[in-house]
Amino acid sequence: MLDLSRVQKELVDCNRDKSSGVSIDLVGDQLSHLAGTISGPIGTPYEGGVFRIDIRLPDGYPFEPPKMQFVTKVWHPNISSQNGAICLDILKDQWSPALTLKTALLSLQALLSAPEPDDPQDAVVAQQYLRDYPTFLGTARYWTEAFARRVSIGTEEKVQKLVEMGFPEALVRTTLENAGGDENMALEKLCSG
């Protein structure tokens, strides 16, 4: 039994504060499935990127931690470059019911600024981080550019483009929304069915 009133309050609180660089949106009509957005911290290779995070709330929330995963591809030692899985203690055993979705997203933002390569999720990235930091920076920056750059064209244009490709408009809209406005990812999802 998800504590709906708390989740609703959390959404309102989080989105009221525009300066934090994190926001949460509903994905469908279920409060248990949300999408978070964090902006890449300034002074890091993630600067300028907008990262979408898939959030699923278990029935036991807030007594059980929310399940979070990066939708946007990101090159980071503690985030899987394959599937976006996150290695962060507060999402596991260090979760406390006193934490909120907003604090969790802020922690993810902090994780982007301060990777912990000694406790890696992605061993390849972590090794590169430790052995060849310049290359790591380059790759992380490139991934930010390629996958997380701010949406430049309007949503309507993208919808139109995809509809022209032969997909039904309603499906295009929801898929695009799920993909955080990322045209390429939406296309990928549409193609994979």
């Binding site: 406390s96 019911p97 006193a98």
Partner: peptide, 24 residues
């Protein structure tokens, strides 16, 4: 809230060390 917290922890097999709900 305490009760919910305890139930989750007991079901999780953590009865021996149920910590306070406050962060850290």
């Amino acid at each position: 809230c305490w009760t919910e917290h305890f139930i989750v922890k007991i079901n999780d097999g953590q009865s021996r060390r149920i910590r306070c709900m406050f962060y850290k």
